[in-house]
Structure formats: C-alpha cells, structure tokens
Simulated scan of single mutants.
Amino acid sequence: MDKANILVLGSGGFGLSLAVMLNGMGHDVTVWSKFRTELDDIRRDGENKAKLPGVKISEKIRLTDDISEVKGKDLVIFGIPVNFVRSVAKEAAPFIDEKTVLVNTGKGLEGGSLKFISQVIFEETGKKIVVLTGPSHAEEVAIGMPTTVIAASEIPEQAEYVQSVMSNSTLRIYNNDDVIGCEIGGALKNVIALCAGICDGMGFGDNTKAALMTRGIWEISRLGMALGGRQETFAGLSGVGDLIVTCTSMHSRNRRAGILIGQGVSPDEAVKQVGTVEGYFCTKAAYELSRKCGICLPITEKCYNVLYNGASPRDAIRELMGRPKRQESEISLYDLK
C-alpha cells in the first residue's frame, strides 16, 4: 500500500474515526471543518468530546478550516451531514484536482430535490464518486473493532483505489457497482431505525423489532429496485447489514431519537436532544420519493405521519397491524394498496 495524501471534510464522529484509522495506517491526513471553534477544541482536548469522546486525535492529523486544502489530495472524504453536502461540495469544487478520488460517507437523500448524494456531488464538482457505506459505527471504527463496508462506484478503478488505500486488518472493504442500491440502503435504513427506536420506547419486544426490520428491508428493496438498484444489494452489507446495526445499537442516533419519541417526547424535541438524526429528514424525502414513484412504503408512511403530522405511534402500529391480508412475497413493485 502506497502512502496517500487524504483530506476528510468534516470533524464529526465518523469523519474523525476514519482520520484516526487512516493516520494509524501511515497516510498523511488532514481534517477540515468550517467551525474553527470545534477545531480549536480538538487541539486543546486532543479529542472531540461531544462527537467521539475518548478517542485521541493524534497531533500528526492536521486540522484546518481552509477549504482550498483539498487541492493536491489523492483522496477527499465527505464526512458531513447530508443537508450540508451540496454547499461544501460547491465550495470545494474549484480546488479539486482531476486525479482526486472523492468518497462520500453520509447516508440520506437531499431534501427538496430528493436526489442521491452521489448526484449532488456530481452536479457541484463534475466528478463521479465512491460511496462508502455499510454497518460501521464511528465509535467502533475508531478503536479498531473488525468492520466490513462497501465501496460502491460506477468507475471500478476508483472503488479499487479506495479498497487498496483504506483496507486494513480491522476494516475489510468489498466493492460494488450498484451505487443506487447502496445509497438507498444506507439512507432508508435510518428511517427503519427510527421506527425501531419508537418501538423500543413504547416497550415492545423482540418479535416486534424482528417484524419491523424484515418488512423494513422489503420496503427499502421495493424503492431501491424501482429506482434501478439490484435486489441482491439489499441482502448485503449496505442493506440488511446496515439495517441490523442501526436498529439494534445505542450508538445509533436514529434509534435513540426513536426511543424518546416512543416514550412520548415530541419528534422535534427528540431530534434536539440527540443531535444530527439523519432518519428524521430522510423519512420526509423517502415518503415524497415513494409517492413520486408510485411505490407503497407502509412503514415509511406511518413514520412520516408520526414525525410530521402529529400522529400517535400507537395508532401507527395498530394501523400497520390492521392492513389488508397479503402474500409475503408481493410481486408488483408499483402497488399503492
């Protein structure tokens, strides 16, 4: 493995976890943030106490608020919330070299446009990207717990480069060319994880969560296949793998926010207490996209009503359980029943 010159855009938990890992592999690593105070806090404390507590940030990792430092980098990794990707990509675009490989780790859909994040970055930079996705909590990546993820790209050489540069004894990377499928899996699992948390907060048990996750991956598959993703992708790391880890772990902000909602906290207050909850925003985007495509996503629809229309979680559960009797394997993707 050759040493690479890498910049991570974002000083949040996952971006920093990758920076720590890549620095430990011997790469030259710089972390950018638009928030100078956050960088100053990291310099002072040697860690990000709010977003990745207990993980030491080596002094060898450079910290900067100068976006022009993307220039000359071999690899630029977007590690920022989905809603801010477009503005940061636009700001960085004039400084990105032709040879630079872009990687996105955020999981979601852009609000309003309902576009994939790969589409957003392409529109602002003119470059195809690699989507890095799969079951990968920042807290575990940073301390070297064995983790497997997907590097998805329409350009095989780019995915292979990411696989070569970032793979190590604790991070195993598989390649995939189904970018749409991988992005949909990573985005919509946040919606199902919110629902899993709501069920936990309401005191439901293992049966409920197993049913929710199983029918949830069906919903993810239906929308993903309608948009051009491949069915087998949703049975892999970026589908069922990511769904399992996000629905079952207290590392998941989506699940934690859902627990609060299930306990009676309002959705707005739950998001305020937990912080960045990608599933909150993705639920709205996924619901709107499903209606646009004519796809029935019952769980997503009920979640949307709870989050945005003031519906009761208990009523939502009752309505889901009372839906018309069906075959488990529904053939038609385009079915609003």
Rank of each mutant, 00 (worst) to 15 (best):
T233P: 10
G236L: 03
H251Y: 15
T233C: 12
G239H: 05
R256V: 03
D242S: 10
G258F: 00
I244V: 15
F234M: 09
W218E: 13
T214H: 12
S249M: 12
F204V: 11
D206N: 14
A211F: 13
D242R: 04
G241C: 13
T246A: 00
S252M: 07
G205K: 10
A211H: 12
K209W: 06
R222P: 09
H251L: 13
I220N: 02
S252I: 05
A211K: 07
A211C: 14
L243R: 07
H251I: 05
T248F: 04
M213W: 05
T214D: 06
A235M: 15
A210D: 08
G236T: 07
G228C: 08
L237A: 11
I220G: 04
S252V: 06
A226L: 05
M213S: 03
V240C: 05
W218T: 11
G229S: 05
V245G: 05
S221E: 12
Q231T: 11
G205R: 11
H251K: 05
I220T: 09
T208I: 08
M225Q: 14
R253L: 01
G224I: 01
G229Y: 00
G241F: 04
D206I: 11
A257P: 03
R222Q: 12
R215D: 07
L227H: 06
I259H: 01
S221I: 10
A211Y: 10
G241M: 06
N207F: 08
V245L: 15
M213R: 07
G203P: 06
R215E: 04
K209R: 15
G203Y: 13
N254P: 07
G216N: 04
L223R: 03
M225V: 14
G203D: 14
R255I: 05
F234S: 00
D242Y: 01
R256K: 14
G203I: 13
A257R: 01
H251F: 10
I244M: 15
G241H: 03
M250F: 14
F234H: 04
T208R: 02
T233I: 11
F234N: 01
V240S: 01
I217Q: 01
S252C: 12
T248G: 08
I259N: 04
T246G: 01
R253Y: 00
R215Y: 13
R256M: 11
D206V: 11
L227P: 01
G203K: 11
V245E: 00
R255Q: 03
G203T: 14
A210E: 10
I244Q: 10
R215I: 13
H251V: 04
L243D: 02
L237F: 14
V245H: 02
A235P: 12
L237V: 15
S238T: 08
V245Q: 02
T208L: 07
R256H: 06
